[in-house]
Design a protein around this nucleic acid. Sequence first.
DNA 1: TATAATTCTCTTTTT
DNA 2: GAGAATTATA
Length: 754
Amino acid sequence: MAEPVTPDAQRSPDEGLGAPTSVGSSRVEQLLADLNQAQRRAVEHGEGPLLVLAGAGSGKTRVLTRRIGFLLATGMARPGEILAITFTNKAADEMRGRVEELTGAAARLMWVMTFHSACARILRQHADRLGYKRGFSIFDEADSVRMVKRCLGELDIDPKRFPPRTVKGQISLAKNRLTDAESYREEQGSFFEETVADVYTLYEKRMHENNAMDFDDLLVRTVNLFELCPDLRERYARNFRHVLVDEYQDTNRVQYRLLQLLSGEHGNLFVVGDDSQSIYGFRAADIRNILDFQGDFDATSVRLEQNYRSTQTILDASNAVISNNRDRLEKDLWTDAGAGDPVTIAELQDEHEEARWVAGEIDRLADEAGIARTDVAVFYRTNAQSRVLEDTLVRFDVPYQVIGGTKFYERAEIKDAMAYLTLLVNPQDTVSLARVINSPRRGIGKTSEGRLLGHANTLGLAPIELLADPQRVPGLGAAAVKAMTRFEELIAGLAERAAGGGSVAELLEATLGESGYIEALEAERTIEAEGRIENLQELVGVAAEFDVNRTVEGDSELAPLEEFLEQISLFTAQDDLREDEELVTLMTLHNAKGLEYRAVFIIGCEDGVFPHSRSIDEGTLEEERRLAYVGITRARERLALSHARRRSIFGATGSGIPSRFLGEIPDRLVERHSTVGPTTGWGLGAGGGSSFAGPGAGGQEPTLELAVGDDVVHASFGEGVVTAVEPGNVVVVRFGGEGERKLMADYAPIQRAS
DNA sequence: TATAATTCTCTTTTT
DNA sequence: GAGAATTATA
């Protein structure tokens, strides 16, 4: 369903969805049965706005799901009248699935999706009202920055003084304040800002010409659409009689405005959030949205304060940390669970030792506490920190998955392939065109490309049109003209095929084949090219999977290719989280939002790393503290925080002092561990002395020295023999029944057999 | 025009 | 210490 269906059109014979019946009321009882009082009050709320202040682990997802079930079961809403905004596509799918269990297949008519997906869907439907075409491209950050850069060039602005990224950032902030280029120019004074205003103006013009939107546009243009076309606003507002929003604390002003436009009249706005978990201020999220919600919408509120996730100790630690923030809505989280284990704070020499320690602890958790890898997550402040960890985990044969970071879809070959497909849907997209016009090499270099774009600009044509008739471009060599004609034929042929609306995977394969892209890679005969081909094959696999799911669900009005492109561009990091395999999960603290694990490690707890030095400079420490709060409260049973004495950043080694957040955790909750001195680690207990010995420049700590042939005893695997010794104190041990395992001599629970 | 070599910048966090 | 961007060379 791509636009709201009128109530008449969606009336279905599905029993139990109409007015409350006996079936309905028993269903309602079922929905409320295992909820606590506060949760029940939230779910049973009548009409009008409600703020659910949900502390960490207080069951907010459950409340949201039940609320939807309640709306449907009592007949307060039909499925098509519900708009539920979640933080990730994955969360949306899960929620839809759960509601489906409660209320049946009609749940598919609900709109459960992220802000960006919902906006894209609305915009596709009414693109013409804003002078866009429905096949508009969605530019990711890299594409947008590229466009900004192009604008800088066109305006003859020095990109050294005005870095494209920075300028894009300014434009983004302006958009998130709903300030258009014109108003921006009026309200700005400095030279810098005036220059940005020039770029902003041109950028908007070019984006429109390219039939392209950036991430901010998806939200802003939807607001524009509703303000410009009251008929549409009314239609959607009337249709979405119940709007529900998860993670409300992270909404920004544009999203706030959108919610206002949609729910202003009926006021059925049900938001769930926790001000203590507001961590997207840098993305213009406005914490006042939640702090002022009650006043703004004249809302009632419900507090969920019982925590069902963590031990008392973990909860105490999180409360102690967050209580150092001034600006917050008081909440008193409590739990029925027992005290549990103390919080571990580990001090290590450097990031390598830190990684080894984490790897060792993960093994130990499995052996001693029966906590499987799936139940373990490691969080860090910046993506760069994952590298050392990954290297170490590979060395120790600990399977893992990294969420976010440098993504599959950012690889050059993947972006190229996607650019081809994008071009088929949106021929006006010159950023995609520029990506593929000479990739693979077909003899259209920078010069020819520049001439083409330049002349298209002067004629006021889309470059793709000119491409069909390249003789019109002055100054082109015969070879270039010929190459362009061939390229145009390629695109035209593929576009025709795309219009047929068949399998995306087949179309992608045809594209990669006919363009000569794969061939060019094969000709390289290098390992890297080999890898790229594999990546592209993986992309074909993704497309094939999409094809299959689509034929199953098959209710979209978008052409398959368009839908595929949109799905990929609005992917969220958490969407590729896997839970069914035995993998340790690695991610940034930001990506950890909304998740939970039996055991959590937070590494790099040093001032400057976490809290990040920039936040210290910019005075956004409270947000960093909330980030710490988010991280800590992800843990159910075990929590370990580590910091290193030395850490190399940018290649240079610096020394770090423990994060101030560590000091905010009361000592009585903590068990300290420090790896210094001649310890073989285990058995001595992690609570031992924290005597820190050496400056350890590049420190090779004393260790259990093992050689090939030595007999050892492992705490859980029993007796074994060393079969190899690898760099970094890794030993390969062959155990009786277990086969061979790689272990860290320093940390694995092994001893020399005597 | 395409490659190789060299210099320079960046690092928060993300849809 | 990696990536992009720029410059030098074929």
